[in-house]
Design a protein around this nucleic acid. Sequence first.
DNA 1: CGCATTTGACCGGCGC
DNA 2: GCGCCGGTCAAATGCG
Length: 463
Amino acid sequence: MDTSGGGPAVLTLDTSAPLFLASSLAVAAGRGRGVLNRKPPSTSLTSGSEMDFFANEKKTTTATTASVDHPLKVKKEDLTIQTDLHLGNTGSSDASMVDDGMSKEDRNELVAIQAELARMNEENEKLRGILSQVSNDYKALQLHLATLMQQRSNNYSPRKEAMKEKTINDGGGELVPRQFMDLAPVNSRSSSSTASPDRSFSPPEVGSVGLDPSKASSYGDQQAQEATLRKTRVSVRARSEAPMITDGCQWRKYGQKMAKGNPCPRAYYRCTMAAGCPVRKQVQRCADDRSVLITTYEGTHNHPLPPAAMAMASTTSSAVSMLLSGSTSSADGMMLARNLLPCSSNMATISASAPFPTVTLDLTQPPSANPLLQYQLRPPAVAFPSVAPATFASVFGGQMQCYNNQSTFSGLQVSPETVTAATAAITKDPNFTAALTAAVRSIISGNNQAAGDGGDDVNAGQK
DNA sequence: CGCATTTGACCGGCGC
DNA sequence: GCGCCGGTCAAATGCG
């Protein structure tokens, strides 16, 4: 039996990986290079249809450039007017040639203006270069993704294919579209499964073609990465009297078990917002403090998320990306975490002893108690190697439909403001939905406020 | 009647 | 090999 459950889901997201990364790159470029820092927050919130994500990405990037250009253009116009006024009918732009009654002060001003103009032109050229670089990076990643997907499809197991075929023919009632299942990747756990093949929640990968198991042996590293990503979990601790936090998604309970060492039962839920969504979560009260609800998320949504869910996804995504960025092993993740978090904290921890890499977000304390939280959750801008796309993708949707909405937020997902706002809202308000809504509102409004300010939004959202 | 939840059974992984 | 445990399934049950 394939108990990996949501495992295969992670691979789905790989489809979105380069897209996500591209967006991240844009953000990284924006952060890393001062020129792009002029981009107003709102430019990250462009939205559009998923199919033209690339176009949308370009649009976003273009918008970024445009937003940067805008003030410059305005200046240029102003400068042009001033220049015309000063130059009169000489028609020359060379101030040194002007000698038609202009005062020395005017000439100096004209020289300064022209220098400014030249500087801005140069700056624009740099921006074009950056845009070009980002675009090239995206294309390279897209190519890389195509290669990986081809490898995966080559590694596909005919036996598993046959089992899935049987399940479908038997009328197993699985609602997962056939094409999703067929594209399920092979991994150490699922490949050994002998039952319940319908549990292979394979995200909708596109472009998988052909079978060539002979190439599987050269794919070990990739498989290891996928296995880690697939099993990566995010555990959220939050105080709530409700039996389950409302995180914006729709869940259906499919099981409940008594876990060892905890008198409180553990409930198992799966996302029902879309047929075949592989995301699952476990809800259990803390044995030590029963007012604390521990919610563990696993897998990737294959559908667009509502704003409230986006806030949560943003938080967990950032946590996971921190865990996995630059590495796919939990041990490395721990090292990375230690490097990133020289100051240990109990608010965001990474477990290497757990069966799967698990990021635990302790939201039972206000962020003010530990201001490091927001930064702990943020992946370093330099941690965007080829692994990163899958990392981000492991939390966010895998369907092309998801790309736009989610990519729209992708720039925010890695921002500390996003995490801060969402975290503050979650922490301060037992009403999770209202809190998350407030958090998202604060994000969308481009409100780069500190955690405390995000809490104000929370209060507003309650009403 | 349809859908969601409950709950016992089942399965695979893992440690001894 | 055996037993424990986590995770999931699916029939039974409850509810609107």
